[in-house]
Design a binder for these strands. Structure first.
Length: 425
DNA sequence: TCTGGGGTCCTAGGACCC
DNA sequence: TCTGGGGTCCTAGGACCC
């Protein structure tokens, strides 16, 4: 990358976007922590009831064609000797924070894009290739020294190209794409490798005979607009190697809070489904209260055993974040129509977010105090020290029994009659 | 032992109001 | 008294990301 001069011969600062992408993040964190996993194929499973999907896998496993998102079953077919490790989300969040702080030492302009990726924006007076490479090496060195983890770094003039570059040089690589090289860089890049072009769009483009970004450039933008609307226009630009050139330091306000859960087994036990719905509502409520948000749109997702799913949502004229209101509304949405098939997954989310409390006719101060007490006890003594009573049904049916203190929030009559009689030992 | 969980953004169609 | 058009809000669903 050349350093430019203006017409007076003064040195011009050059802005670069640096994409830092951790290599096989979850798996590498586990390997760094447990030396016996080093150099071996590792699958990190999601922290879920069914243990069915690979959340991340080590490079030793990737060699066999294993990818994250694959079922463990499929992964083991490709790589039978893989070691399966249960994920530790807190550990990854903590490591991610540490990496973020390391990046902030290089510039304040850091955007935490996801748990294992970040963008840096820097103004450099010497943006020569050597200098950029040196900068990338310093970032990699700092991260490695403090976390024992490797990352890949892509540098260019916008986020799209920087991200593609870091992806192409994985693992443990550095790739710099100067603005003047973008045309050439994109020419033979498969459209499926462009962030923003997913499997569906790839399929459509392939059907049009388009496989590489270079082919898109030969077609008019109007064709894409006609075929795919605004989305088509965006894709046309992405394939030209254009993209966002600003990093967003401040994380945007959240738009929704949600939790979903795939049951251990598909079920038509409505008491269990209600109990899970109650727990999910509780989880959503706790997070929203902790962060001080209220919402007025409840969205319920159900997935049936045949994998078909539906979402139903409802907007309310008041804002809330208490477990009971979320649960009651979610329940009435869910049971508005009869459920005839076995359920695989239940999900609840709350959107229509407002930060401040909106005065509501339904304000219930007693309940607010109660929730405050519940939240503070859970904060002090651990999650689920105190929880809505209806959650007990799931705990007793499906989870290892531990000493609990049930908290009844006025829903006693809704607790299934079978609840007491079905208690296992 | 087939397919997790957390999100965001966009679109299309209907209801409703003026 | 068979019927226009624009704007906005709501809902359901799909595509995409990590």
């Amino acid at each position: 990358m050349e350093t430019r001069q203006d017409s007076y011969g003064r040195l011009k600062m050059k802005k670069v976007i640096i994409h830092v992408d951790m290599d096989a993040f979850f798996a590498s964190v586990e390997q760094a922590l447990n030396p016996s996993l080093k150099g071996k194929p590792v699958f990190v499973s999601g922290n879920t009831a069914r243990d069915s999907v690979i959340a991340a896998c080590s490079y030793e496993a990737k060699k066999y064609g294993v990818k994250s998102g694959m079922s463990i079953f499929e992964g083991l077919n490709l790589c039978p000797h893989a070691i399966i490790v249960r994920g530790n989300p807190e550990r990854y969040i903590d490591t991610s924070r540490r990496i973020f702080h390391i990046l902030q030492r290089f510039t304040e302009m850091v955007e935490l894009y996801s748990i294992d990726e970040g963008f840096l924006e820097m103004e450099l007076d010497n943006a020569s290739y050597e200098n950029l490479r040196h900068l990338a090496l310093s970032i990699k060195k700092a991260i490695y020294q403090e976390t024992s983890l490797t990352c890949s770094i892509g540098i260019s003039c916008n986020k799209t190209v920087a991200k593609i570059a870091s992806d192409l040089c994985k693992p443990d690589g550095i790739m710099i794409v100067d603005e003047s090289q973008i045309y050439q860089f994109m020419e033979n890049l498969p459209v499926k490798d462009v962030p923003g072009i997913g499997p569906r769009m790839t399929e459509y483009l392939n059907l049009m005979g388009i496989e590489f970004c270079g082919q898109v450039r030969k077609l008019p933008v109007s064709l894409f607009r006609e075929k795919f609307g605004i989305r088509g226009e965006e894709i046309w630009h992405l394939c030209h190697g254009r993209g966002e050139t600003k990093v967003t330091v401040q994380s945007p306000e959240p738009k929704s809070f949600g939790h979903s859960y795939t049951l251990m087994q598909d079920t038509d036990d409505m008491n269990l489904i209600l109990s899970v719905l109650c727990r999910l509502s509780h989880q959503v409520g706790m997070r929203m209260r902790e962060e001080g948000y209220y919402g007025n749109v409840v969205c319920v997702t159900l997935r049936y055993s045949d994998f078909s799913s539906f979402t139903k949502r409802k907007t309310y004229p008041f804002w809330f974040n208490d477990d009971q209101t979320i649960f009651r509304n979610a329940g009435s949405i869910m049971f508005a129509e009869p459920i005839s098939e076995k359920i695989r997954l239940v999900g609840v989310s709350l959107s229509g977010i407002h930060k401040r409390y909106q005065m509501s006719l339904f304000r219930n101060e007693k309940r607010e105090i109660m929730l405050k007490v519940m939240d503070s006890i859970n904060k002090k003594y651990g999650t689920d020290t105190v929880f809505p009573c209806l959650m007990l049904y799931e705990k007793i049916r499906c989870l290892p029994v531990k000493k609990t203190h049930a908290f009844i929030f006025g829903e006693l009559k809704k607790i299934p009659n079978s609840f007491l009689s079905e208690q296992p030992e």
